[in-house]
């Protein structure tokens, strides 16, 4: 464990909690892409199948449980509890264009051709593009609530910090995982546009609005 990875995990956990609280407190999921949250639930499910078979540490197991439980809770709130506030007309990204290519790629490029390893690889590839429906929805509505932009910023920063974690681990642990690094780079690049808007607007107290 190193500071970048720890801060990354904290940032990721913060994003998940921010979203849960935003929906629960405001009793509304307006502006939130249910499709992205569905994809995140798939990402955690396919990545943590070894939750009960491969114990690494208490921290690792407890964080995995929190991630899986909160992602399912978020999906449940969007598609069931507060589905009346779900803005389906603006959440129109074709997720099959994300799931199919990443599934095919996980069969072609992986560390080991075994079910668990292919599912782990699929989850890494899917995570790198899972935010696209949400970013697409923000660009379609032309704006995002400030709390939603804080959620997106925390979520984007988590994988950016993981990039520094991989530099650290390559330097000091001779560890590198090209699949995770390349997917992490793609994931971070997808946030660049949003990071620019967040830093130039939201941090100056303005509302996040995209040129429609």
């Amino acid at each position: 464990m190193n500071i970048f990875r720890f801060l990354g995990d904290i940032s990721h956990l913060s994003a998940i909690i921010i979203l849960l609280l935003k929906i629960w407190k405001s009793r509304s999921c307006a502006g939130i892409s249910g499709k992205s949250q569905l994809l995140f639930a798939i990402v955690f499910t396919t990545r943590y199948l070894d939750l009960f078979t491969n114990f690494i540490s208490f921290y690792n197991t407890s964080m995995k449980v929190v991630y899986v439980a909160s992602s399912y809770a978020t999906v449940w709130m969007i598609y069931s509890k507060f589905k009346a506030t779900y803005d389906g007309n603006h959440d129109t990204f074709r997720v099959e264009f994300l799931i199919v290519p990443t599934a095919i790629l996980s069969f072609l490029v992986n560390h080991d051709f075994t079910p668990l390893e292919i599912l782990w690889t699929f989850s890494i590839y899917l995570e790198s593009v899972a935010i696209l429906p949400q970013l697409f929805m923000v660009s379609k509505t032309g704006e995002a609530e400030t709390i939603t932009s804080h959620y997106l910023f925390a979520l984007g920063i988590y994988r950016t910090l993981y990039l520094f974690n991989w530099i650290w681990r390559y330097q000091f642990e001779e560890f590198f995982d090209l699949i995770a690094i390349v997917a992490g780079l793609v994931q971070t690049v997808l946030y660049c546009d949003f990071f620019y808007l967040y830093i130039t607007k939201v941090l100056k107290g303005k509302k996040l609005s995209l040129p429609a």
């Binding site: 990875r5 991630y67 560390h111 080991d112 390893e117 090209l178 995770a180």
Partner: peptide, 10 residues
């Protein structure tokens, strides 16, 4: 290079 199955990151 990481060995398959020993993914210790979240």
């Amino acid at each position: 290079e990481v060995l398959p199955g020993d993914h210790d990151e979240l």
